[in-house]
Design a binder for these strands. Sequence first.
DNA 1: GCAAAGTAGTTGTATAATACACTTAAATGT
DNA 2: ACATTTAAGTGTATTATACAACTACTTTGC
Lengths: 142, 142
Amino acid sequence: MSHETNTSIELEIALLIRRLTSITTSRKFGTLDRSAYLLLGQIESHGSAGVKALAEEFRLDISTVSRQTSALEQKGYVYKMPDPEDGRAYFYQLTEEGRRMLLETRAQRTERIDELLKGWTEDERTRFGELLAKFNRTYLDD
Amino acid sequence: MSHETNTSIELEIALLIRRLTSITTSRKFGTLDRSAYLLLGQIESHGSAGVKALAEEFRLDISTVSRQTSALEQKGYVYKMPDPEDGRAYFYQLTEEGRRMLLETRAQRTERIDELLKGWTEDERTRFGELLAKFNRTYLDD
DNA sequence: GCAAAGTAGTTGTATAATACACTTAAATGT
DNA sequence: ACATTTAAGTGTATTATACAACTACTTTGC
């Protein structure tokens, strides 16, 4: 396999993360911050979950997710139900407000992508989406 | 243009930034941290530059870059030359050690990409590199 | 069936990356 | 020549994160 291709990908990835941080920090990129957006999206698509499952999904420390979910609960976007089978555990579920915020943010973020990619062909956008998805699901047991 | 495609790209980008943060934080991703790596790379490829130019390139606040370059200077990876035409300004240049670290980190990071993408076809990797480059250069005057 | 080990979650503390507001010194414009 | 602008640096705050210690519960091994 071509080493130059991978050197180029490596550089573009370093730039991408800088660029995405900059775009998403400017806070015009949706009402919810990134962690909140991902957590609510995960709960929406995979059903209610505890801190541990969420932390594993996003490869974050449990303590980090614990604080993030607390913040979401504080804001009324999720609520916490004790796990009937395990007295230590909880499930977080979306509130109506949480679902509303999720959809609103998703719409705002998609609109931003629309603007960014307006000069791209349909084929480029489709391919980009596919390759990003493939990359995100390419795991390495580290 | 397809809205679903963009919704999907939007989600994958949110996931990607989380995933990249996780990969690059584990610190097995090269000796230099991301900001140092990008700054040294920029100075290498575009020649010596001042804080302002670097901040613009990476869309960071000048204060942020000022601290980052100070840290690089501290570690002996760059040195600072006064701009002969402007008594307020400086140019940062790579030291030999800085260049060495840059190349070493680039090699380490590329190797990591090699591992991650080892199941991909040559065509997929080429296309991914191209689309990432295109995305990174797709600007929006925000 | 109980003690030891393990586990889910929380909280304390530390660090890194960032922005914004302010300061300083030099350059530029009128 | 004085006011305005600009390059860089510094003070301070915020956010996202990890690791370590702790609490309360569960599971396991004898």
